[in-house]
Every structure is written in structure tokens, then in C-alpha cells.
Amino acid sequence: MQKVIEGKAYVLGNNIDTDQIIPAERLVYSLSDPEEKKNYGRYALSGVPAPAAGLPDGNHAFVKEGDRRSEYAIIVGGKNFGCGSSREHAPACLQIAGIQAVIAESYARIFYRNSVDGGFFIPLETTTPLIDEIRTGDRLSVDIGAGTVTNVSAKRQYPLKPLGDVLEILEAGTIFEYAKKAGMLPKDS
């Protein structure tokens, strides 16, 4: 697991649901085919209404027209991030677009679990809301070991909640590697 993550922030509001993260009509692409799955990068966050896309101003494309990767590495969200569907396409599309960490006030359970068990990115939580503190495009530095996120652009630092139980899985990589370490799966499977 990467201990320090740096990059530009993309800021979203509360209750960002999986239909906004990846609209259902896009769920037809293969997640197993390396070339076809790049489509998920192209359509990541394409369901977010324009005024809410990249706060505070809105109207920031997460992925530029025709691209399959985002210029942003970190998403900052509010409460209940990833609510709705169990579609693993949601955390997968963010990873495919280049997201390395999501920092939210809280998560919906299945999205959080999928992010961890599939090893897509590190889902971090903050003790206070950050969506009014950080602007889309701000440069952030996340230090997992120190448990902080620094807004390099605004020179401000905020604490992160400890990762707790899921740290072991994130460090292992996915639920499969974790299960091998825990003796649930044979090491050579």
C-alpha cells in the first residue's frame, strides 16, 4: 500500500451515489479485458450533474472529453460517499481513471467494502467535513502513516481517521492476499 499520495483534488458533495459514479448504461463493458475496461475511466463520474461536478464552482470535467484518465488523483467527498448499488464498477472506474485515494466524511457500506476488498484505492475518512475547505484543483498530500491530509495549495492540514480493521487488507492488497496471509487460502492459489 502506498503510504504517501500526492495529487490534485476533485471535490464532490454529499450522497454521491453509484449511478453518478458510473451510470448503469455503462455497466456493459468488461472489467476483465484490459483494453475494454479503459471505457470505465472514460465514463467515471459521468453521472454527476454539471453544477456538482468539481466543487465549489462545478462544471469541471473529471475526465476530459476523449480521455480515459483523469488529471485528478484524489477525490474529496462528503457524507455517505458511494451509496446505492453494489456495482464494483464504481470503485473500479475511479481506479481506472487514476484515483489513488478517496477522502470522505463517511461511506456507504458496500462501496467501502468493495474499495478495500478489491484493492482499488484507499478509502479514507475525516473527522470534519472537508468539502468546503478544499477546492477542486488544490494540490493535496496524504500521509497514511501520519494520518493527515495536507492542502499544499492552502497550506492547511487535517487529521484522518485511523483505518482500523481494514488496514490489514489494504496492506495485503486485496481480500485474496489477506486470506492467504490469514491462512484462509493456500499461499500458492
Binding site: E88, R113, D117, I175, F176, A179, M184
Partner: peptide, 21 residues
């Protein structure tokens, strides 16, 4: 009964088990 993602489902397909909080 509860909903899960592809990774957890693949884990079950192979092992018949899943961790639950």
C-alpha cells in the same frame, strides 16, 4: 442476506466463505 461486489463474490465462488463485520 446482503449485497456484495465482484471481488467478494469471486472469493465466495472459490471458498464458500466471506468475512463479515
Amino acid at each position: 442476506s446482503t449485497g456484495i461486489g465482484n471481488t467478494d463474490a469471486a472469493f465466495i465462488l472459490g471458498t464458500g466463505k466471506l468475512w463479515v463485520k
